[in-house]
């Protein structure tokens, strides 16, 4: 049985706005502090929502943060919530709490974010690379890795893309 709708996000978000579904596909947008991730996951879970998608954006250029993106939805009615968590990247990388205790779906999503962006998740049962080779020393989706402009000049018969600094 699916729990009925009864979402209570009071005090958990830094900002919440309604969004125009016909324009961008979301009903609500929220910004959340990284320390509140597990609490907001619990609030969504109790309200009958599930984690639809989780990803990350490299916004170090314009927002000076790594932005985690969570999407929560329901099966019985359409009500999509977009949650942003902006992490200030420290050296060696940003860190956020893991929500695998609430949503097991986050397990593989967080591993992919770690693999591609280098964001670590504390409390994750087994944070290791998922798509790239286990001994890779790069995080592929960072904006300063593997740009086409950095590819070396083509040699005859060989293509060598994605090897930039």
């Amino acid at each position: 049985m699916l729990p009925t709708a009864g979402l209570d996000l009071s005090g958990l978000t830094s900002s919440s706005v309604d969004s125009d579904y016909a324009v961008d596909g979301f009903h609500h947008r929220h910004t959340v502090e990284s320390g509140r991730i597990v609490e907001i996951a619990r609030a969504f879970c109790d309200g009958g929502y599930h984690l639809e998608m989780m990803t990350c954006e490299d916004r170090r250029a314009d927002l000076e943060a790594m932005r985690l993106v969570y999407t929560f939805g329901r099966f019985d009615l359409v009500d999509r919530h977009l949650v942003f968590v902006d992490l200030v990247p420290e050296i060696p990388g940003a860190e956020a709490p893991s929500m695998t205790g609430v949503f097991p779906a986050a397990d593989w999503y967080e591993r992919e974010v770690y693999d591609m962006y280098g964001v670590r998740f504390s409390g994750h049962p087994d944070l290791k690379r998922i798509l790239l080779p286990d001994d890779a020393d790069f995080h592929a989706l960072l904006k300063d890795f593997g740009r086409i402009e950095d590819a070396p000049e083509e040699e005859s018969g060989e293509r060598d893309e994605g090897q930039g600094a």
Partner: peptide
């Protein structure tokens, strides 16, 4: 264990 068919579409 996945990743054997990773072709970097998002990149």
């Amino acid at each position: 264990i996945i990743g054997y068919a990773h072709r970097a579409h998002e990149k």
